[in-house]
Write a protein that binds this DNA or RNA. Structure first.
Length: 521
DNA sequence: ATAGGGTTAG
């Protein structure tokens, strides 16, 4: 039987239709189309109700559209929704918070009486987002009641936003009821400051992990130079039959890139395709970078050309990767193509393209590109200096340094010192060494380089002085190491000068892998 | 109202 409902209680049919359309767009994070529907709605004279406005405000919030938000605010006040509806009021506060207009949020917040928990939480998170933890704490203290969300926002504020993890942990320990998000934010606070031990401790103690939890830990290890552990956690995840999502695979792929683990990277690529994990720009770019770092330019090119969406980062990976792999001219071709397609070139891309010129010995081209950089940063000068020094144009490099609008940094002087080594220029080398001392960049490598310059000129007494400084400083040159991927997907590391007696098994793994690579025809 | 990802010279 059809329910009998009085027509008076039915919502305005047209309004309802439009609201549904707006809702659909919002749930697909399409804020602009949602706002367009709102505009059409008004143009057609359709009534907007207290379901329309919170959604529209959410759309304004998503695009940080302060102007649009203010207009909607005006309408709301005129129609009287502000006084009657809590969702509308909270929508306005949230919109102003996202637009970093805390004084507006505050004024609204203060002027109405029935504040609910959401209103309070909005204010706390607003101040946290704006970096004003002091004000956030004040509001938090004034709250008549707090829930998990309130506490979690404060942990986020102390831990992730300002890096005060001990303060965040204090709050975390004080809470009697925590949810997954609380744990994730606490763990992420530790990874952000690089304390992977504390992060791992919480991770291991956590009862119900979400995909976000795994992603935080995998990416944390990957971003803090522990790609091996990142891959260990990734395989642990797979061994529990948990299906990773696009966030988790990115950390794993980037770890393969750092390790040069090509086969493992390929395996993950296959796995992603097989399990239909979303291949968005970021995942694809990570894959390209992995192939590039592993020296497989063909596979990187294949991923790049198959990408439906590309951004600056993808182009940059292509340009820097080709340059690093010795395809300087092709790298430049991609750079011009990028410019032709009118993709905004950023600082990093200029660094990549200049270094490609440097590798390819394209001095004139490099100089030409450098002149096109509108506000060259010290890194760009560094690339330029490197380019000139490698081409043997030491004097020109020095005059560029003199013309720089900023102070030269240690990397830059390091490039010049390298040039001195090539040209066996002692006096300039000594000058540069002093500069390096001034900027605090006289690390062990610099003294090794300087001693090489002296040695190249047969100045053995000076060489001994450099050696003495090295010993006095207690600096130890970081050992060279080889990281070899073996057939079972693992990685074996050999450090230069290390004892090999106990490494029989590892050596056998490498030999076994090598024998498997031999093409048996 | 609170949570996760990719790129940089030597």
């Amino acid at each position: 039987m059809r329910p009998i409902v009085s027509h008076l209680h039915l919502p305005n049919k047209t309004t309802y239709t439009y609201n549904t359309m707006i809702k659909t767009h919002l749930s697909n994070s399409k804020s602009i189309p949602a706002l367009e529907i709102f505009i059409t709605m008004k143009r057609n004279g359709v009534t907007c109700d207290n379901y329309t406005y919170p959604m529209v405000l959410k759309a304004c919030k998503m695009i940080r559209g302060l102007c649009e938000g203010k207009q909607v605010h005006g309408e709301i006040v005129k129609l009287g929704f502000f006084d009657s509806d809590g969702f509308v009021r909270n929508g306005l506060i949230g919109m102003y918070c996202k637009c970093r207009q805390m004084s507006c949020s505050r004024a609204l917040f203060d002027c109405f009486h029935e504040k609910d928990l959401v209103s309070w939480n909005l204010m706390v998170s607003g101040y946290v987002e704006c970096g004003d933890i002091v004000e956030a704490q004040k509001v938090f203290d004034e709250m008549p009641e707090r829930d998990v969300v309130s506490w979690t926002i404060m942990i986020d504020g102390y831990g992730k936003k300002i890096g005060d993890v001990s303060r965040a942990r204090l709050l975390f320990d004080k809470m009697h009821k925590r949810d997954v998000v609380t744990w994730n934010i606490m763990i992420d606070s530790y990874t952000k400051v690089g304390d992977m031990v504390a992060a791992r401790d919480l991770f291991d103690r956590m009862q119900h992990k979400s995909l976000t939890t795994w992603s935080i830990v995998i990416n944390g290890y990957s971003q803090h130079q522990n790609p091996k552990e990142a891959l260990n956690v990734f395989s642990l995840m797979l061994s529990y039959d948990i299906m990773p999502d696009k966030f988790c695979v990115v950390g794993a792929i980037s770890s393969c890139a750092q390790l040069g683990a090509l086969d493992q990277g390929r395996w993950i690529h296959m796995y992603i395709k097989k399990k239909k994990i979303t291949l968005d720009v970021v995942v694809n770019t990570a894959l390209m970078d992995m192939y590039m770092k592993c020296g497989s330019t063909e596979e990187a090119r294949a991923v790049f050309s198959g990408m439906s969406e590309k951004n600056v980062v993808s182009w940059n990976v292509m340009i820097s990767g080709l340059g690093a792999n010795g395809f300087a001219d092709e790298s430049l071709t991609y750079f011009s193509q990028m410019e032709r397609e009118r993709i905004q070139v950023d600082d990093l891309v200029y660094v990549s393209v200049l270094s490609a010129c440097s590798h390819g010995g394209f001095v004139t081209k490099g100089l030409e590109i450098f002149r096109r950089i509108r506000n060259p940063k010290v890194e760009h000068y560094g690339c330029l200096i490197d380019l000139l020094v490698r081409a043997g144009r030491l004097e020109q490099a020095l005059s560029f340094i003199a013309s720089m609008p900023m102070e030269a940094n240690k990397d830059l002087w390091g490039s010049v010192l390298l040039g001195c080594r090539v040209q066996r220029n002692v006096s300039l080398g000594e000058f540069v060494l002093n500069k390096l001392k001034e900027v605090g960049g006289d690390d062990c490598g610099v003294y090794v380089l300087m001693s090489n310059i002296y040695a190249a000129n047969g100045m053995w007494e000076e060489v001994m002085k450099m050696r003495k400084i090295l010993v006095e400083k207690g600096v130890v040159k970081e050992s060279g190491k080889s990281v070899i991927e073996v057939v079972d997907g693992g990685v074996v590391e050999f450090v230069c000068g290390q004892q090999l007696q106990n490494r029989k098994e590892d050596m056998e793994r490498v030999l076994w892998s090598l024998s498997n690579m031999v093409d048996l025809e």
